[in-house]
């Protein structure tokens, strides 16, 4: 088990959101009752997010990043450990406090079309969270809906309020999703692959929008993605996840320029920038595939694919977190 992450730039206010020894396991059952094991989607995650910072959780599919997002949102119950928001553990909240928490954290999903109910117009979509949170006054709701649309630069709002999701382009749909996430005036936004379903030309636009909203309102933004090439411009700190754990974390430039963990190094090595010379050489790719989360390997989870594996250590003992460079943490025995 890794030790709790040491905070990098603890402000006086303390972290807005933190995870302590967070585990989210999904039980696998046969015939509906026979327990055959657990999928360890999130398996011992620690981090702290400071108010107003933008961070990215990066990893391949199945690394547990989406399960982590949903655990933070309270959509999954953690199996062990806790999520602490503004000093209080989510597990201790009563129903009313939980609802307040949900209003404080906005959620932006991957598939904008799927994230919007197809039978509601934009107005209704934006009113819904307000109705749920007891904003009875229709005029007040309408005013906030318009503000939210202006915020995501869907203006004039009148052009969009009575549109249905299928009448909007992918980028516009995602803006509506963002507007909906903003309408309850959250302190934090969790965005799960917000642009991976969009066209390349729209992606940048949406990411810039998210980033500008985040800086304008001092929001905390947790940005979950598989695409390292976009995070440089839209996050300040990166957490690299592999097989349910955070293997490396550092400020963006530090991580991109000096990757420490062999997995991060492989990941960066596999990403191409458009360059005709790419076609002339083979890329170095670690062999094999990420492990099964049902029976993860002993020791470091990356050791079966790692070319710098230390026999007797990496394959037996879980690596704790080391700090090989200032502010740069990694869970790898190489930095013992």
């Amino acid at each position: 088990m890794s030790a709790p992450a040491r905070d990098i730039r603890r402000s006086a206010a303390g972290p807005v959101l933190s995870a302590r020894d967070l585990h989210t396991w999904f039980e696998l059952r046969q015939w509906g009752f026979l327990r055959v094991g657990s999928v360890r989607a999130v398996d011992g995650v620690n981090f702290e997010l400071q108010a107003g910072e933008a961070v990215a959780f990066v990893g391949e599919s199945g690394c547990g990043k989406s399960s982590l997002a949903r655990t933070l949102l309270g959509l999954h119950q953690p199996t062990r450990g806790e999520v602490i928001f503004e000093g209080r553990s989510l597990g201790t909240l009563d129903a009313r406090e939980r609802k307040t928490y949900l209003a404080r954290v906005g959620f932006v999903q991957q598939d904008p079309y799927g994230a919007l109910p197809p039978f509601m117009d934009v107005r209704r979509i934006l009113h819904e969270p307000l109705i749920v949170h007891g904003v009875r006054n229709r005029a007040e709701r309408e005013k906030r809906a318009r503000e939210a649309l202006e915020e995501v630069r869907l203006s004039p709002p009148d052009d969009f309020l009575s549109k249905f999701p299928h009448m909007l382009s992918g980028g516009q749909q995602q803006r509506v999703v963002i507007a909906r996430a903003l309408i309850l005036r959250p302190a934090m936004i969790i965005a799960d692959e917000p642009v991976s379903m969009l066209d390349a030309s729209v992606r940048v636009e949406i990411l810039q929008l998210l980033r500008s909203i985040q800086t304008n309102h001092g929001l905390t933004l947790a940005f979950i993605t598989h695409d390292l090439s976009t995070v440089r411009h839209f996050a300040e700190r990166i957490f690299v996840m592999y097989a349910g754990r955070i293997v490396e974390q550092a400020p963006v430039n530090e991580l991109l320029n000096h990757p420490q963990h062999p997995y991060t190094q492989a990941l960066l090595g596999a990403i191409s920038d458009p360059d005709p010379d790419n076609a002339l050489q083979m890329r170095e790719v670690p062999p094999g595939e990420p492990p099964s989360l049902l029976k993860p390997p002993a020791g470091c989870r990356f050791h079966p694919r790692c070319n710098r594996m230390i026999p007797g250590t990496c394959d037996q003992e879980d690596p704790p977190e080391f700090e090989p460079r200032n502010g740069h943490h990694t869970a790898c025995w190489l930095y013992r």
Binding site: S201, L228, S229, T230, R232, H233, L256, I271, D273, P274
Partner: peptide, 12 residues
């Protein structure tokens, strides 16, 4: 195109 190894922000 967002580029990993370049500083400039991509345009839309």
């Amino acid at each position: 195109v967002p580029r990993l190894h370049q500083e400039e922000t991509p345009v839309h």
